[in-house]
Design a protein around this nucleic acid. Sequence first.
DNA 1: CGAGGGTTTGAAGTGCATCAAATAGTGTGG
DNA 2: CCACACTATTTGATGCACTTCAAACCCTCG
Lengths: 254, 254
Amino acid sequence: MAFIKVSMDALHADTTLSNYMHHLAEVPLLRQCTPAQRQHLAQHARLEHHAKGKVLFLSGDRADHFFLVLTGWVKLYRETLDGMQAIVDVLPAGHLFGETALFEENVFPFSAEVIEPATLLRLPIAVLSDEISKDPALALAMLRVMVQYRRQQDQELEHTKLQSAPQRIGCFLLRLLDQRNQGPFSLNLPYDKTLIASRLGMQPETFSRALTRLKDETGIRISGARIEGDAISQLAIYACGACSSTFPCKDKAG
Amino acid sequence: MAFIKVSMDALHADTTLSNYMHHLAEVPLLRQCTPAQRQHLAQHARLEHHAKGKVLFLSGDRADHFFLVLTGWVKLYRETLDGMQAIVDVLPAGHLFGETALFEENVFPFSAEVIEPATLLRLPIAVLSDEISKDPALALAMLRVMVQYRRQQDQELEHTKLQSAPQRIGCFLLRLLDQRNQGPFSLNLPYDKTLIASRLGMQPETFSRALTRLKDETGIRISGARIEGDAISQLAIYACGACSSTFPCKDKAG
DNA sequence: CGAGGGTTTGAAGTGCATCAAATAGTGTGG
DNA sequence: CCACACTATTTGATGCACTTCAAACCCTCG
């Protein structure tokens, strides 16, 4: 997977410009920039390390920068007046966040917190703004990414409405796998079960029970955070019946 | 409300170019076009009337055109393998749909059906595509609209996760009202209760019960499709506690 | 070893869905 | 103008899925 490669590089990172550019080139949105544009961004990039639990910004904060995850995990969330939390997304290496503030009066529409020790690139929104207004192609690229995001959200909405808890977990697992590979599989859950639960909009207890139900229904094997099975189709048949998309379901865009 | 004005015009429509352009100028996305651009679109526009129940296209169909609703209502939906239906959106006059196919390989990502006798403008995607690639400003405008859409969807996801059925209805009603007006209010539901129910992701029976619960809790009055109350805050206090947005919640963009 | 967080299990409650049936509304033809 | 047919809406009874509260368990790390 692409992001593993990125994270390995980051571990041995020298913090030179060219190294930053290498990271930037991995991001779908920025891949379409010219090298000159990426260099311009890289010149203003700042590398940051954060411990688990670090709150990067809160919903409503003024947004001067956006971020690229190099290693670790970051969660985006919003809080309601009566104290509930809705997870907007949980991002691994290779993903941008906060860049949409550019179109939302430079205010972040969600809060962000580091949930696994993370290395981030902090990039000024102003530079992105510049580049976009100078280069129509970049605006088109961003549009494309945005539309893709919108479609995924449609799908997520559909999932919370139409899929059962075990099916949602099955779908989540499918997205972690390389779906071209039909044979046996094995994976580690990328972060806390508790967090996966809230990402999927359910309670930890429900997650636990739903996972054992998924195990019983599909024959996958579970030990701790490790999950194994004999064929991806086990999962697909069970999970994808309640989904309007065709089988090889896409992972999220970056 | 803007769309009422539009629909009145459409009823007495002469089908001239300048009249089409008038409609186009009402749409947020296209308002930012130059008159020349709108004219270019208008030249290729085709007016269509459709009865209730008419299926305009199905998810996966090739998308050569997109649509503007002039009068009536159109629902967008997707269907799962096991026959469930998820309503993506229900659109009144003044709203575009299908334009995002431009960025999705010219394939519609949902199906569309007329649910109240409708007048539509059918516009070629190719023309929009042309205009966008020629004019960066238009791409930026579209980006802005797209980001706004994305934010709304976030919110909708949050609502289905965190709000109860009566709260979701309260929120729905709030969006139908002019929220700057603090005093007594009165409105008619814009379409079938059954359809509102599925738009909000619940069964008709649940909608009915939830509406009477909302009535009991907030003191609003209901008779048929007509709903009245003494103060908007009645609804806001009840519904917005489980929402992460601040009170004057925004209506959807066009 | 012991503290603390993550995870699982159990019991009970809540909310929404489902099935079934009654009722209200609407438009039709007589 | 009325009776009928048909649809939209409401109401009741029941079931299931998920939540909530409580407690046990497990694992890791100091």
